[in-house]
Structures are given as C-alpha cells and as structure tokens.
Design a protein around this nucleic acid. Structure first.
Lengths: 253, 253
DNA sequence: GCCTTGAATTTATCGGCATAAATAGTGTGC
DNA sequence: GCACACTATTTATGCCGATAAATTCAAGGC
C-alpha cells in the first residue's frame, strides 16, 4: 500500500513545529486528559534538546490550537486543556473567512440538519432544559417596533437554536448547527438588516418555536421534525433579502 | 445594546496573543489576500513596541492557525496564507478528539447531508469531473478477497465521497462531508475491520456509485438524491459492526 | 550562455538576564 | 486556635544580542 510517508512533500518543518508535534504525540501516547500536567519549560528544554525560545514557540502553537493552557507560579506550567467549542468555532471560522459562504448555503445546511436535531431530541430533554428553551422562545412577547428590536429578536431566535444544538447527543451535529448559528448571529449583529420588521413572519416563527418545545416534551419526533422544518422556511424568509455573502471578519474565541 | 466587551472574562491575555490579534485585525482592515506580504520582524518590533521573541511567538500563533506562512531570505518574511482545508480539518479534528464521536453519529449526518450534496451537483459537473469520479468508483472491479483488500476498497469508496464533496459549490456542505470522510478513512486505516468481506453489500454499493454518476450526468437531482440515500444505507451497514467509538488520535495537516 | 561562488537579506535558533505572576508557607496579631 | 498579611519560591513572561541557516541575486569564471 502506501503507508510510507511522502516526506519530500514537507519541505522543512521548523523546530518549534516539530517539538509541538512531539508534545502532541506524547499526550496521545499517555492518554492524558484535560488538566493533566505537562513537563515544565526547563524539563522540555532538556527533553528535546532545544532552547527555551523554541519550546515557548512550540507551546504557543499548541495553545493557539486550544490543546494546552499555561499558568505561572508554583504548581504552574502547562496543562492539557480540551479544545473548547468556542475555540473550535473560531478556528473553523478562520477557514470560512476565505471561502465566501452565502446565506443560501447556510440555509441549505440548516434545512437538512435542524429537523434531524429536533427529531433526535424528542423526548430526551429534561424539564429544566425544556423550560430554559421556553424562556428563550418567550424572550420577546411582542412584535419588533424598529429595526434594532428586530435584530435583538433575531439574535434571540438564533440563541434558541444554538442552545438546542448544545443539547445534541451527536456532537458533530450539534457543533455544525451551533457554528451556523454563530455565523448568522455575527451577520445579524455586524451587518445591517434591510428588511422592515415583518410582524406576521415573526409571530409565526415564535409560534413554531413554542410548538417545537411542545413536541420535544411529548417525545413526538416527527412533529418536532416537521415543526422545525417549517421554522427553517420562516427563518430563511427573514434572511432571504440580506446580502448574499457573509461579512469577512475573524471570530473571537 | 451590548457591544461592550466583558473584559473581566479574559483574566489576562499574553502579549504574543495580543500582538497576534493586532496583526489579524491589521489584515482584515486592509483586506489582505493570500500572498500579500506582512511587515518583517524588525518592522513589527517597532510597530508594536515589543521584543523580537514576542513577535515571533505571535507569528507562530498565526502560523498554527494557518493564517500566515513565513520564509527566510531576501523578499522573505511573512505572507498571508489562506487556511487550507487540510489544516481546517486537522484543527477541527483536535476538537473532536475530546468529544467521543460514534460511527452512528457520523452516519446520522451523512444520511442527512450526502443526498443534499448529490442533488445539488446534478447537472453541474463537467465531463472531466464525472470521469474522475468514474475512475474512483471503478478502482476495484472485483470483490474483496481478504480483509486488507476490503480496507482498500472502503478507503477508495470514501475517496469517492471526498472528491464529490470537493466539487460542492456550498463550501460548508463540502467541508463537513469531507471532514467525515477523513475521519472514517482514518478509522478504516488505523483500526481493524472486523467484518468478513461481504461481496453482496460491496457489489450493491459500487453499483449505486455508478448509478449516482449517471444521475449526476443526466442532471436528475431526485434520482441522485435517492441513489446516494440508498448508498448511505449500504455504507452504514458496512460500518455498523465496527467499534462504536472513534480512535483517539490527532489528524495531520 | 551557463555554472559556480559569494555577498546580502531575512528568518531561525540559541542562551542568558531581568520581570511579573501565582502559590505556598511563615509568621504575626487577635 | 484562627484569620490575615507578608515573604519566599517557583514558574512562566518578556527582552536582548549573538550566531546559524536559508534564500535570493549578482558577479565572476569557464
């Protein structure tokens, strides 16, 4: 087969990068978990036979990827740190910064995935989770009176979907939906909404969110799926007139 | 509203991180594209009023995220570099290293997304792209004789889907499908396949790939969608007996 | 013309020094 | 005995200057 690594493809990897990879491998081999300590700077200097600056650059690389965190002081040093969902979103956002995603692209995905999420959550949420969703859905009990209020309502609606995504047992499904909610939130906050507030669409969307919660509580997967599918069509109508392409900005993490 | 940043939440950000953020902002403000040059080390030292070591750590952070590349020599220095899809996959893979994804999770996603991809590609591929897919689908014209050959066939089948994902106009859809193909490929290569070769499932799967290409060529979106939906059920059957949870390893980039 | 050699430029790596932050331990006052 | 402040220690953080390595470009030799 082709297990042989095509080393020629990697023209030259810098020492910090190589050290970072060795540390990663070290973590995997020992199956270290979040919070487990790594050797301190001077130990790594000795271990890898490189200078302090090189070790520190390697640690920065891993830190940038969210794999470690460092603290000063006694008992300090570097520890393994799970990549947070925020950081993963930000790093993936860097990729799509260059990719020219459109609102239509996002809704093609949402229409395929959010019904799936809703169906898989039916009957599986605690009463606490359900009432938290209800609070989010009821956050605005009146139609938007101006463009600013419509923005806030839109962000709140997206927060509802993001929270739903947090509850997903399928972590990939949850991540992708949460990522899209984050992109759309940024889009809503940082770019203008040009539609005049549309009270009827808003009322319908809110009603569907509440009906979704009802279906989730009842454990009715098919009703949940259908309801959120309708909701996606409403949400898409909200966004349809927006600028086709997303803001070029980097996400915070 | 709430544009005010909750600075208290960020206990303390190191100087290299702050410098890296400033550089990112600098790139966004000037709308720099891939290949555009950044100031060299000494200029940044003067610009940000920090030492060389700090600047170098900042550059490593950006390099780790795939945002820049640096070269030595005259005309060298740092340039803006689009985040490659490989790096984005690797960085996202770091997140899922900690998340305990199951094969069932991946197939829930694949069943929702791959039919969507197939439908949206119907009638939109060039003859070159179609024949490349045909080559991939025909790569093995006989049933697997042993477990090793079945592995190879499985990897080839995943390469077919990955290539299809590359052709997607919806970059997010393409990325997610390609990411899953990558995970499943790793899983196939690095972990054992415990099923005995199943000639009938294989024959059926290959036939569906060829029928999919036919539908794509004919521009028949619904046939493409249905065909790949069937194919997903076949592929899932291949994987169903595998270990429930994915290998804990970091991806290369 | 073409190849080799060498100078110039820029990052890469190193090691040492001083600073800042966080913790643990010590002692003091009550 | 207990709480509080202070000190000492540990560890990363940041800075600097020197040297190495890689790359480009041009000059010189053939």
């Amino acid at each position: 087969m082709d297990g042989a690594a095509p080393e020629a493809q990697r023209p030259r990897r810098s020492r910090p990068v190589r050290v970072a990879d060795e540390i990663k491998q070290w973590v995997v081999e020992r199956d270290l978990k979040k919070g487990d300590k790594l050797p301190n700077e001077s130990a790594m200097i000795a271990q890898f036979g490189v200078s302090k600056g090189t070790v520190r650059e390697a640690l920065r690389i891993l830190e940038a990827q969210g794999l470690i965190a460092t603290k000063t002081g006694p008992g300090g040093g570097s520890i393994v740190g799970e990549v947070t969902v925020e950081r993963a979103r930000a790093l993936l956002g860097n990729y799509f910064y260059f990719q020219d995603l459109s609102v239509a692209d996002l809704y093609q995905m949402r229409k395929a995935l959010e019904p799936e999420l809703a169906a898989s959550l039916a009957g599986r949420l605690t009463e606490d989770q359900l009432s938290e969703l209800e609070d989010l859905a009821k956050r605005f009990d009146h139609a938007a009176r101006d463009i600013e209020e419509e923005k806030q309502q839109h962000v709140a609606s997206l927060a509802f979907h993001a929270r739903l995504a947090d509850f997903a047992e399928n972590k990939l499904l949850g991540f992708v939906i949460g990522f899209m909610a984050r992109i759309l939130t940024d889009l809503t906050v940082y770019r203008g909404l040009y539609d005049p507030p549309n009270a009827e669409l808003w009322r319908k969307g809110r009603e569907l969110q509440l009906r979704l919660i009802e279906a989730l509580r009842a454990g009715d997967a098919e009703k949940a799926r259908d309801t959120i599918a309708s909701h996606m069509r409403i949400a898409e109508a909200f966004m349809q007139e927006q600028e086709a392409h997303l803001a070029r900005r980097f996400m915070d993490d």
